Simulated assay, not measured.
Amino acid sequence: MKNLRLMIVGTATALSAVACQSNQQNTEKTAGQAVSATEASATSPNTLTAAEQAEGWVLLFDGNSTAGWRGAYKDAFPEKGWKVENGELIVIKSDGAESRNGGDIITEKEYSDFELTLEAKLTPGANSGVKYFVTERLPKSPGSAIGLEFQLLDDERHPDAKMGKSGNRTIASLYDLITAKNKQASPIGEWNQVCIVSDGKHVEHWLNGTKVVEYERGSTAFRDLVAGSKYKDYENFGEAEQGHILLQDHGDEVHFRNIKLRELKAKGTASVNQD
């Protein structure tokens, strides 16, 4: 018989791909097309459809409060630097410095196998990111907390786009490690659909319905990339079994909404090979 585990993990990844694409279609409808009352209800920001609930999706942001989040290396949500307004979680513009105003925020819970989707809207010249497998066991850095990062950046205006290697600090890239390919970012001031899939060691970045990054955590290729990056001095960088989801405060105004997560179970249910 074929390897049962590979079959199940492959199915889980395929389902994730469908979800990453379908969430983009919902965003496009709510952005500009006329929709029926039923469709509008199903795609309202910061809500879950009955189908999403049945599939195990949960909201990480309810549109009204900061419940479920706290400051990185802190016990509570930052007292400044962030606000909730019009159903959006917003980084308040300061001086563009990394995590020096309100600071990064992280989920109270930690996750391992998951699919995360959210919408992010950049302002001109903005820099931010969505990090995952963030652990506070690593030494606190003077800037942002350490973790794998889905870069959010105004590539045209922010100088970070020209730093790093071969564009690996541009929007949707695995920051300082892997450059996003075939990406179609929304214009500044419009929503981007972000999707991150972590299934076992396999990770994917999706931007606006297109897969733009794919890699294996802990592989030789991954470790070689880390060795040539700014993370080279962090032992076992990116290889934690689980970690927090993080939204970055880089001193620029950035808006987030529709933050949803589904924990993937397929990896754990098929640990025995049948040949």
Rank of each mutant, 00 (worst) to 15 (best):
A185Q: 03
T47K: 15
G125A: 09
Y111K: 06
K74D: 06
L59G: 06
K181M: 11
N46L: 06
K162G: 04
N23L: 07
D199R: 13
S229P: 08
N208G: 07
A50H: 06
I178M: 05
A126E: 01
A227E: 07
E115K: 12
N236H: 14
A14Q: 13
K131T: 09
R100V: 10
I105C: 07
A14W: 08
I8Q: 11
A12V: 01
A14G: 09
A19I: 05
G143V: 00
K267S: 14
L247G: 06
D95I: 06
N26H: 11
L152H: 03
F61K: 10
L247Y: 02
I105D: 06
S94C: 04
N3D: 15
G102E: 13
A172Y: 03
E119L: 11
A14H: 13
E39R: 14
C20A: 15
P142Q: 06
L15Y: 13
E55R: 12
K121W: 04
N192R: 04
A50D: 09
G189A: 10
E156N: 04
E190N: 13
V226A: 03
P45E: 08
A221S: 01
N26Q: 10
A54W: 02
A50T: 12
K140R: 12
T117C: 12
I90W: 12
A40I: 08
V58N: 15
K109E: 07
E204V: 00
S44D: 08
K29S: 08
G63D: 08
G129W: 01
A266W: 05
G32R: 07
I259F: 01
I105W: 03
P45C: 05
V130P: 13
T30Y: 12
L60A: 08
T38D: 15
S41Y: 09
D249Y: 00
I259Y: 01
N236V: 06
F150Y: 14
D155Q: 01
S173Q: 03
G87C: 04
W57A: 05
S36L: 10
D224G: 10
L247D: 06
I90Q: 10
L153Q: 03
K183G: 13
L59A: 05
V212A: 08
T38S: 15
C195K: 02
R70G: 11
A17Y: 03
K74R: 14
R257M: 04
G200N: 05
R137S: 14
K183A: 15
E156H: 00
K29Q: 09
N127C: 02
N127H: 03
N208R: 04
T107S: 09
T43M: 02
L153E: 00
K2W: 11
A120R: 02
L4R: 11
L48V: 00
E263T: 11
K165M: 06
S198F: 00
S41T: 15
E263I: 03
T135S: 15
R100D: 14
E149M: 00
G32E: 03
S22F: 05
I90K: 11
K93Y: 09
A221M: 00
A54K: 13
F150K: 02
Q25I: 04
R257S: 01
E28Q: 11
A17L: 10
D155T: 04
S94V: 07
E108D: 12
L89D: 05
A40F: 13
F77H: 03
K140L: 01
T123L: 10
N168I: 10
K260G: 01
G268N: 15
Y215W: 05
G209W: 02
